[in-house]
């Protein structure tokens, strides 16, 4: 009896000596397992695969830095089309979509709750089902025959003589992608900013008016933006990540990967091209790591702009 008691006591002591750190670890275990299973391990595997040659049939063979070297030195499509396209797309769709999202959120916050819900739902919808929406709505709008809405409009007003192949002409394609992406830019970031703006205390505005601000613009600068800064940061990061990870739009619009003469080829399409069409998984993984790096750098910049400093 005493022996058992002593043993239990010593065990309790042992556990106690493990300290609070161990307790924390135990408590973190469920999250830790899930996180590593679904996020950390896949990223590490992708990182590891980027140093190999892997065609999904045979086991990966170690290739050292070969993938990175050929990405930086031999992939002219990447440097001539993919990188400029991605930058151009991200620079317009990221900040542009972000500004539109903030503006729409602010406008919606000014109206009554009932219509607000309906409008918010409508605005949020495109980002929920982009693939289906894009192929149904926008291919109808920009269709290359005279039945396409834009072509029909231009033809009926005698502005053009024959229908323009909008979705197959490199000159128009990236711009159409940008328009479509801006249209579906009201995503999670938009919802977060809407919630943030709705949460601002009305008294702040009243106090500000007493203090001498004169118009809506100053209201936004002095009250709204400082109050929703955390949500705006979230929205900005989501916008940047979304802009860099977009890619489905181009393929859905043109119906092909690669897009017409690589005019709308973004990094994600390039990854798809190598990963799932050519089955060069190692190379695709290397491009993914590159993309990860780019997103990371741009998120850092975003934090610099919107993060809490003072």
């Amino acid at each position: 009896m005493t022996a058992r008691k002593t043993a239990r006591k010593s065990m309790r002591d042992r556990v106690n000596t493990m300290g609070d750190g161990m307790h924390a670890l135990f408590l973190l275990l469920p999250y830790g397992i899930l996180f590593s299973m679904f996020i950390a391990v896949p990223i590490l595997i992708a990182f590891g695969l980027s140093f190999t040659y892997f065609d999904m049939i045979q086991a990966p063979t170690f290739a050292g830095l070969a993938n990175y070297i050929s990405l930086l030195t031999q992939d002219t499509i990447f440097f001539q089309h993919v990188l400029p396209n991605t930058l151009r797309f991200a620079i317009i769709v990221g900040p542009g979509g972000y500004i539109i999202a903030f503006f729409m959120a602010w406008v919606l916050a000014q109206i009554q709750p009932a219509p607000r819900t309906v409008f918010a739902l409508c605005l949020y919808m495109p980002s929920l089902a982009p693939g289906v929406f894009v192929s149904v709505v926008w291919t109808t709008v920009f269709s290359g025959n005279q039945a396409g809405l834009v072509n029909a409009f231009l033809l009926s007003n005698n502005l053009i003589d024959q229908p323009i192949q909008f979705l197959q002409t490199p000159y128009y394609f990236l711009n159409i992608m940008i328009i479509v992406s801006l249209w579906s830019a009201m995503g999670v970031g938009f919802l977060a900013m809407l919630a943030g703006i709705l949460n601002i205390d009305e008294q702040l505005y009243e106090a500000a008016y007493i203090d001498g601000i004169r118009n809506r613009f100053q209201e936004i600068i002095y009250i709204t933006i400082p109050s929703v800064k955390p949500q705006m940061l979230f929205g900005a990061v989501m916008a940047i990540v979304g802009a860099f990870n977009a890619g489905g739009v181009g393929v859905a619009l043109s119906g092909a990967n690669p897009t017409p003469q690589y005019s709308g080829q973004l990094i994600t399409n390039h990854i798809d091209d190598f990963g799932f069409i050519r089955y060069e998984m190692g190379y695709a993984a290397a491009i993914s790591v590159m993309l990860l790096g780019m997103v990371w750098v741009f998120s850092k910049i975003t934090y610099k702009f919107f993060g809490e400093r003072d």
Partner: peptide, 9 residues
């Protein structure tokens, strides 16, 4: 000319 858009932006 690939990157002229950077200048314009």
């Amino acid at each position: 000319q690939n990157e002229v858009f950077l200048v314009n932006f």
